[in-house]
Amino acid sequence: MNSPLQSTVVAERRHSAPGESTAATNVLVVGVGGQGVIMISKVIALLCQQHRLQVKQSEVHGMAKRGGVVFSHVRFGEQVYSPTIPAGEADVVLALEWAEGLRWLKYLNPETGTFIVDTQQIVPPFACRNRKPGGLPGYDQLTVDQIRTRLPGILALDASGAATELGNPKAANTVLLGALSTALEFPAEGWQELIAGAVPARTVEINRQAFNMGREWALHPPTEAPRLDKSPPPASVQTLERSVHLEITDAWCKGCDICVKTCPERCLVLNAHQVVEITDPGACTGCRMCEWLCPDFAIRLHSSIPEPE
């Protein structure tokens, strides 16, 4: 493959020949809109500038709104060419949300990388596409311990919980900065100064405490990993099984296409005879839209739901 990105990486590698200490340090900050990803990367970038290092930052936040994906690449060193971090070369992946962290893990250097992650879980609407009663959300089900078997050095902390305890859940990103400060070789005071300048004046004190808390935690991590904050769905919901079956009276269907086009799961089609057919019975949630809107009464939905305890 000969993409421009690849050739830049090759050029840079050539530049940072063995023996020279000019290889860039790569920090990838990820999270969802509204969490402060950009604030974190700005603080890192300013700190680097204060230490007269070259720094390049590139971010995507345009489609984020609140709750959308945000990521920011920060690269610094004596000489930095490309602003984006190649997969597998991040020295630190700093994630403000659990599943976002897992999603970007392939960027982490598998041997030397540090994974710092908030165990807070924000389940996006997109992950709730399974509309069947009792259907599990499409959110990553991996636990901290499962990741630890692959990455023994994982720093997984409940930064959001800690910040909430301090009185401002928004300071979670500063808790994580505190943890990050132990992975990069800058003195703690420099961080504190920049954070104080980057946050609203009335939250300076809380952010100072948040930073210290995160730093302290990373220097002396407790032996027990924090639990992921999402409690499992209640047993009655988990075991809810619904059997649905669509009965179609072929002779009554006039092929008007209403059911085909309004089925939210798109699991109906008109066959060669212009008669409706179900393509994927497993996809049908039993919502009854087709039954209600068929002007010819050609669809009958049979469904059984065991009564929840």
């Binding site: 002779a251 006039k254 092929g255 068929c294 002007p295 010819d296 009464f297």
Partner: peptide, 12 residues
């Protein structure tokens, strides 16, 4: 099947 045209709202 009834006499109505395909898609006629009266059936609904």
């Amino acid at each position: 099947p009834h006499f109505m045209c395909p898609g006629c709202g009266h059936g609904i």
